[in-house]
Design a protein around this nucleic acid. Structure first.
Lengths: 84, 84, 84, 84
DNA sequence: TCGCCTGATAGTTGCC
DNA sequence: GGCAACTATCAGGCGA
């Protein structure tokens, strides 16, 4: 029955991927809709994209800063959850 | 107050896009997880990907066929909703 | 003389790309001409495009099928050039 | 026989387009090869692309300048081929 | 003829 | 570190 089980597993895998991809496609469509709406309200989609990109960079940078801070505090034994 | 309204709109737009992108990233992560799980169960991800791609291609072709048929029927004035 | 050689190489590269792009642009023009001619002969360019697209999709699918078959046979160690 | 002739024409059109597209694809491949070669020789493809783009802009600009010059000279009756 | 929209292309990121 | 998949951008084609 190994064959049958494998086939079943394979089918499950493929199906799950397809479902997820479908949901992804939906979301991409939603994003496009927001850009379209933005355009209709007089906002330049290109600039909106830049803003989104910049904010993402900011977030990444902030997280890096925090990670660095964490690293230092841990190294100095200043962490709250250390050595309990 | 136009300025304020515009700023508000802009903020709404950017926020909504960011939320959607977050959800998209989650789904991409889920897809990756399924591939990882597949690999752990002995399935070659490369083959899985090809299967998914092929099934997608099948769907695309089916849709193209229908679109073509539509195009022909419309071109020939055979459309059901014509001449009402 | 490394600088000089590099400059020469760079020039050769850029020139070759430009020549190829020019040829590409010519071909794109030729394709457009065929569509124009088709239109003059009463064929709807839209339908022609769809036919071309569909035939391309057919080819793609055929190739995908073969690639998949290849992948399976290789995965199962059934390849002719194995174990020599 | 109109049907037959039309079918023949259609086939000719589609075939010609496909041949041209094939040639186009070949050239695109050649261009990619040049970029690959450039990379192997230590040139950054990104920069090469910028150079190509800039030179194209330059050419466009030069052509515009010439067109403008033409316009003026014609307007002033200074063109060599006028009034023959 | 202009604006939109789809398809082609260039750039980026993640995997091997 | 190179390569391939994916994403974002851009240009050409279509419809109003």
């Amino acid at each position: 029955m190994t064959q049958g089980i494998a086939a079943e597993q394979l089918h499950s895998i493929v199906t799950r991927i397809e479902t997820l991809e479908e949901r992804k496609a939906d979301i991409v469509g939603d994003i496009r809709d927001v850009y379209t709406e933005a355009k209709l309200n007089g906002f330049d989609p290109k600039i909106i994209r830049q803003i989104v990109r910049l904010r993402k960079l900011d977030r990444a940078e902030r997280e890096e800063q925090e990670a660095l801070l964490d690293l230092y505090t841990h190294a100095l034994g200043m962490t709250a959850d250390a050595d309990l």
